[in-house]
Amino acid sequence: MDEGLRSELSKQGIFTVKMQELLQWGYNTSRKNSIWPLQFGLACCAIEMIATSMARYDLARFGAEIFRPSPRQADLMIVAGTVTKKMAPQVVRLFNQMPEPKYVIAMGACAISGGPFKQGYNVLKGIDRFIPVDVHIPGCPPRPEALLHAFMTLQRKIDSDLLTGPNRARHLDSEICGEYPLPTFGEHDLEPAFNPEVWHPPVIVRE
């Protein structure tokens, strides 16, 4: 159907849609309105995460109030807090054990960069070194409104997921593996220190 006929029909009150678009709309709409987060707090950001799910901020408005204590039933991991190097393999394993589709919100300064512990020896400088993070929220800790904003951002991202084609959503691509390699405890640092598939060290340009 060409665009001219389509717009002509829509002027008459007849809306046409491709089957694929309809399926994609239904799929994305139903998924984005029922995100079940993993009940998983690492540090003080978890308190803000709890506050977000409680009556005052009411995460249930986004269909995401059901925090699951098992990765088997969760499709969103909120990395809420400081990820120490000792904890990092467990975080990655939990992420690997979640079924597809799965999303990650890195909540707070520690989860996105190491935060105030960035210069320390035992804190991971951002969980995005090992798993693909969809939304980063800055803040120490971020307010519940910031987490709600992250939810809305994630919903917009899910809404724009494509069903087919080369740019289709990560979980629909059979080429992309759902499991990410686990770091192991090395002599001085985690080995490998980052996953080159999801993160590259920034290139410092000095003039």
């Binding site: 690997n96 054990q97 079924p99 597809e100 979980h171 629909l172 593996c177 759902g178 499991e179």
Partner: peptide
């Protein structure tokens, strides 16, 4: 559309 992606860690 949605291929299954099992793995040793996911099935563990």
């Amino acid at each position: 559309f949605s291929p299954a992606k099992p793995g040793p860690q996911k099935n563990a």
